[in-house]
Design a protein around this nucleic acid. Structure first.
Lengths: 223, 223
DNA sequence: TCTCTATGTTAACATTGTCAACATGATTTG
DNA sequence: CAAATCATGTTGACAATGTTAACATAGAGA
């Protein structure tokens, strides 16, 4: 597949290779399988070469996590952008694709929301995401869609605003609504992949009930 | 507080001491702070003594996790059992106490749902919790309340059944409803303590919106 | 008392992340 | 072009940690 141009340098592009093989290792063999020596072996290099590209293992893992989030975003994106199907269908499918991604790649999903970043995030927490306030306080939704970054959470917010503009959803703070939706999806995914639910054999059914409950709390009026 | 009877044996009761000091260490200093040597030092014993009581570090951590779940259960229990206040108030307070427990003890909460048990749970997942099916297929709710174990999830299920009996909640599968509620609470807790939300400075407000959305999807009819 | 089992200690080992010292390919400079 | 400089890779060593084996000791029961 990816025959790198091995002509260029010592190894080629070690930095990217490290990130991607680490990502694949996490996905297939779990987080504990990742050791710097094993990583180096698989790439035919030596353990310490890593330190020419990353400050340490943790710095590498952060990059891996970022790449993992890209995969997650890529898995859900089609359902955000498919403008042909009705909004609620997209909304429904987006949720399914999210939970499905988690259950099909449990190791990867656990990494994304796992303990690697948690300490650091706790510190940075306050200053984070000031850009969201722009969305929150922007009055027109059309304008927001343009300025929103391609982050999945932002896309979710814009979909909610869209649904509010179409008088489908109640006019609640869209960011808080998005938070509730994300919480439900994230919690459900985590509980399933960690085996805390007794009904994890039928993920689809569990999701449908969750979706139904959530939706009835979101829609504007009942028929 | 807990002056153990140091007269009895070599150390006294090392097994329980290990579990409880480990639990406190996780809570105050994080999971990474736990090393067998440090644990042994704090208890004035030697590192290898641990292996007379546990198969290894992982076995010890599993016991720590069980003790941690007891703390979580104890933190929410008052809101389950306070029979004087109306059911919806108990329901509301229970959710707040859950999220509050998580945000006030982030290290502990992360441990409970963290990576220690995840692999094992994946294997045991299918055979787990057959007792829940009894609740699901029991027709009378009063009978269920008696037979339910003191697990928090079971209590949640019984409260839902109670609300259904009082015609407050819709008659949906109570286990699936409980799953949805737990997912929301768990997801919200995790996202907050890991700093994924931009609004984590006002936990209460976030919870209220989540609760409102969830409740409107649960209640039987709108006024 | 003697023996046995439970519990605790010490020393050693393998794994892993990290760093220092050295080596080499590529790039820039005189 | 030659030399210097920088980027990249390698080797050896070290500290921390979980684990195990061999040894030690206290308490219980014959």
């Amino acid at each position: 597949m990816k025959k790198k141009k091995h002509t260029s340098y010592h190894h080629g592009n070690l930095k990217e290779s490290l990130i991607h093989t680490a990502l694949d290792m996490v996905d297939k063999e779990g987080l504990e399988a990742i050791t710097l020596r094993e990583l180096a072996n698989r790439l035919g290099t030596s353990r310490s070469a890593i330190y020419r590209h990353f400050e340490g293992k943790e710095a590498l893992m952060k990059q891996v996590i970022l790449a993992g989030f890209d995969r997650l975003d890529a898995a859900i994106e089609p359902y955000f952008n498919n403008k042909e199907s009705p909004l609620l269908e997209r909304f429904h499918a987006m949720g399914i694709s999210y939970v499905t991604f988690a259950t099909e790649n449990p190791n990867l999903y656990r990494l994304l929301f796992g303990p690697v970043m948690s300490k650091e995030r706790e510190e940075v927490c306050e200053t984070e995401r000031p850009d969201l306030h722009k969305i929150l306080h922007g009055d027109s939704s059309a304008e927001v869609i343009e300025t929103a970054p391609d982050d999945s959470f932002h896309k979710l917010v814009t979909i909610i605003i869209e649904a509010q503009d179409q008088e489908i959803f109640k006019k609640e703070d869209p960011i808080l609504i998005a938070t509730a939706i994300w919480s439900l999806l994230h919690g459900l995914s985590m509980l399933i992949i960690d085996g805390h639910l007794s009904i994890s054999d039928n993920v689809q059914a569990v999701y449908e009930v969750n979706y139904k409950i959530l939706l009835e709390g979101l829609v504007r009026s009942h028929s």
